[in-house]
Design a protein around this nucleic acid. Structure first.
Lengths: 242, 242
DNA sequence: TATATTACTGACTGATTGGTCAGTTACGCC
DNA sequence: GGCGTAACTGACCAATCAGTCAGTAATATA
């Protein structure tokens, strides 16, 4: 044997390198932003030299693209599946989509990508377009379809779906973006799950068919206010947790 | 006379320089981000040379601070005045605060600053802290106080004000951030005023005291659903505009 | 007009870093 | 064992740009 394991200065690992480089790049891009991340650091974190990085990615920009492509697209596809499978009220669907987003994006390392994309969109219009077409517009379509379904069944009021959809996702944007920007400045840590719960409670209540006196008796089963515990308790459940 | 107006290569304008430099820097920082903005370009846009810029601002970072200080802080102070002066329901107060934000920040050049701060917060923790203390936490306090007032008067349900406050402002963040990130990618232009109107309609409806059958008869005067035109019409007013 | 003051200029420097490539070394194959 | 291939290294190059400063010219003052 020419080398013991310790002697070996490096090993050939052609298959593993790209994923390891992308993972390292995700960490550093999210942590420092695109411009402030040095490729030498990315390479070092992946356990290789800068030259090796350039064997797999022709430029810094291409590495950036690979990070975005690899991380987010699968998540949106899972959400689309979730939508197709769902049987039940639109309100419950929206609740589940929000929850799914939290577990598969918001609460993972991927949560840094939205903020990263916002920050760098100006300097990479082409990449912004890609992200918009491949992720954002699909997400928008999904949520808009859920809202539309609620309107069609009479569960929601006939609002403009395009605006309502944006109001549904706005707090999700804020949550991720916040964590990677002013998260450190905020002394009080808020519980993301409680925050999202309250958001869904409020927005569904806001969207819900008017609770006019005449309608109280003939509320549809899907309507949010009845099936869950007392509205006050539910909405206020956020207050209990620290 | 030594020089005609055309001959003169430059003029002494000590008083005007800082404001002009800050204005130029605001444009370029918003357009390109902090790292990608070259000070030579800022100086050129302000009609001076790079050396002059350094006569007024000791470093790029200090210039950045000056941009933030000069632009946003006065706006938040105006909002605080608005709060103190207001007489009327909490719902109407929130509506006015949102409207005021739109006219004095969202719909002006200053609208780019929130996105700028989000993007650069990671690389300038000290500045992020400054912005957080001087702008964000004051804005939070303001909106939280408005929500609290609504709860105290019984106009709103007893939700956790800290979470509700964030839900009130989330769509405002999204609106400004969007314009300076994916705004170009979006083919459909949405009307910000209609968007904000719908937001306020929905969130106030969501926050509103429960319209339980028993309570319908004894709604307080401040309650949102009755005083405005039919809920359906109002909420849907967004749909009408293009 | 002459002189002093200082706002302003712009070429320069030093540090950083994206990207290159000639050389080195692991490893498959005979 | 030894040979060929290609994965990998790291010193190097070139471009960029924040920040400097010796010099220039506008203006105040006398």
């Amino acid at each position: 044997m020419a080398h013991s394991r310790q002697d070996r200065r490096w090993a050939r690992r052609k298959e593993a390198r790209p994923a390891e480089l992308i993972s390292a790049a995700l960490d550093l891009f999210v942590e420092r932003g695109f411009a402030a991340t040095r490729l030498e650091d990315v390479a070092a974190r992946a356990g290789v030299s800068k030259g090796t990085l350039y064997l797999y990615f022709p430029s810094k920009e291409d590495l950036f693209k690979a990070v975005v492509r690899g991380g987010i697209v699968p998540a949106i596809e899972r959400a689309e599946k979730q939508f197709e499978v769902h049987r039940g009220g639109a309100g419950e669907l929206i609740r589940q989509l929000v929850k799914g987003w939290w577990t598969s994006v918001g609460n993972t390392r991927l949560g840094g990508i939205p903020k990263l994309m916002i920050s760098e969109s100006g300097n990479f219009p082409e990449l912004a377009q890609f992200y918009h077409d491949e992720v954002i517009s699909r997400g928008h379509r999904l949520v808009a379809a859920a809202v539309q379904r609620g309107i069609d069944t009479g569960e929601f009021q006939p609002v403009d779906v395009n605006y309502a959809m944006r109001l549904v996702i706005a707090p999700l944007w804020l949550l991720t973006v916040w964590r990677f920007s002013f998260g450190q400045c905020d002394r009080q840590q808020l519980d993301p799950v409680a925050y999202l719960d309250l958001h869904v409670d409020l927005i569904l209540r806001g969207l819900g068919a008017a609770a006019e006196p005449a309608m109280v008796g003939e509320q549809r089963p899907g309507l949010r206010s009845a099936p869950r515990p007392t509205a006050g308790t539910t909405i206020n459940s956020a207050a209990g947790r620290k």
